[in-house]
Design a protein around this nucleic acid. Structure first.
Length: 128
DNA sequence: CGCTGCACCCTGA
DNA sequence: TCAGGGTGCAGCG
């Protein structure tokens, strides 16, 4: 099933609030609503990716948006959004799994299965 | 309506 | 430069 380890990236371990974060993630993986608003993450400032990440982080638990939505907010193309998200250093914290394609679930850097499970955790169902 | 091809913008090589 | 990526849309049958 869904494993914490599948979703932890080096970017997380650099965070000094890691224990706090770990606790939140535990709650999250039990299927409860958790906000990661206050979690600070190292991300490139002044870059295109930063703008995309910032936008994606606005998505709350249970919400989803399409690549197109994000693209319009940021002022770029859906393709570029996918490109930025594929380089997401901190899965879950930057909820890239909440960004889906218009016609379906879309892709996921760590495998679509994980994305599906994450969405299921938040009450969405993309099962075939 | 399903399929294909191209345009969209940004990275890494 | 250029190829390609977690897409979208127009065009065609």
């Amino acid at each position: 099933m869904l494993d914490f380890c599948d979703c932890v990236e080096p970017g997380l371990k650099q965070n000094k609030d890691f224990s706090n974060l770990f606790q939140k993630l535990s709650v999250y993986f039990q299927g409860n609503r958790v906000e990661f608003d206050d979690v600070k993450v190292r991300m490139p400032q002044n870059s295109f990716r930063a703008r995309v990440f910032k936008q994606v982080r606005k998505l709350k638990w249970g919400e989803t948006a399409t690549y197109k939505d994000i693209a319009e907010e940021v002022g770029t193309s859906p393709r570029a959004v996918g490109m930025a998200l594929s380089k997401n250093p901190v899965l879950i914290i930057i909820p890239c799994h909440r960004v889906v394609a218009e016609n379906g679930i879309g892709g996921y850097s760590r495998g679509v299965e994980i994305k599906k499970n994450l969405l299921k955790l938040e009450g969405h169902n993309f099962n075939d």
